[in-house]
């Protein structure tokens, strides 16, 4: 690989990881100031863990992420199946648009629009509305991930199963689903992370008692730099890194079985 390419990679990854490195390093900085190194300390982690509202917000975020990721995985998988298997059906173009549009749409539009819907329906805003919103936005991502895997599956595998006497339901449960499972898991993890990470939409559609972690962090950031946030971010980064590496391993692994027939 040429020197230019190597240089591009190093600079690129340095750029990507610079803020993360800053956060991690300074989460252990005894001093609250960024430019002063006060020695290694874990006191901010202590402050973090005893920060009631922050911990409560973290719990809310986890619950919302779990619920919305589950819904998004089901919806997204159904959508992916429909787009790859159902051929032409009435409204297919509109359906494709509805599935893919939320992925690129600016979040402020989605957030406002959903809030107006909930208000119009008279729904109380809270955890349920955030779950609905997150599920709606993540469905498209799951559909793309699962759809890519379904497209890569050899269609003869399903034919062989049918030839051996399996009805459509059995074909789906014993052949299609197991072979698509890694993509479903990756899609779930993607939806989970998107939910954990979301600030804008949650701000619009949440209600009293339903403060998510990003919402809490944002309000603290507005008040000024807070070293406790470094600790929170490092922990978050640690958790998400483990999850992301697992998902990457799964996506990498499922590249092989579909071709080995």
């Amino acid at each position: 690989m040429s020197a230019i390419s190597k240089g591009a990679l190093i600079l690129g990854f340095a750029f990507l990881y610079a803020p993360i490195a800053v956060l991690v390093v300074y989460s252990f900085n005894a001093s609250a100031l960024v430019t002063v190194w006060g020695g290694f300390s874990t006191r901010w982690y202590g402050v973090l863990l005893s920060d009631g509202p922050l911990m409560a917000a973290a719990l809310v975020s986890l619950r919302v992420a779990l619920a919305s990721a589950l819904i998004a995985t089901v919806m997204g998988t159904l959508a992916a199946l429909a787009l790859t298997r159902s051929g032409r059906f009435p409204g297919r173009a509109l359906f494709t648009g509805l599935v893919h549009a939320p992925m690129v749409m600016p979040e402020v539009i989605a957030g406002l629009a959903l809030l107006l819907l909930f208000v119009g329906l008279g729904l109380d805003r809270g955890i349920a509305t955030i779950v609905i919103a997150h599920a709606t936005l993540a469905t498209g991502f799951v559909a793309v991930v699962v759809g890519a895997r379904l497209k890569g599956l050899d269609p003869s595998l399903e034919e062989a199963a049918r030839d051996l006497g399996a009805g459509p339901v059995r074909v789906f449960l014993t052949v299609t689903l197991p072979l698509a499972a890694p993509a479903l898991t990756a899609g779930f993890l993607l939806a989970f992370t998107l939910s954990l990470d979301d600030l804008v939409v949650a701000s619009f559609v949440s209600g009293p008692g339903a403060t998510t972690l990003p919402m809490r962090l944002y309000s603290q950031i507005r008040l000024g730099v807070n070293p406790e946030i470094n600790a929170a971010s490092t922990l978050l980064i640690g958790v998400v890194t483990v999850v992301a590496l697992t998902a990457s391993r799964l996506m990498g692994r499922d590249a092989r079985p579909g071709q080995g027939a």
């Binding site: 050899d154 003869s156 595998l157 034919e159 062989a160 199963a161 030839d163 051996l164 006497g165 399996a166 059995r170 014993t174 052949v175 197991p178 072979l179 079985p257 579909g258 080995g260 027939a261």
Partner: peptide, 25 residues
Amino acid sequence: NMMFQSYVLFPHLSVGRNVGYGLKG
């Protein structure tokens, strides 16, 4: 029953389960 040109064995199932797939039901 058909034997496919590229064999199309179920990659996620063992040889035994492949052969026995049609015997369920």
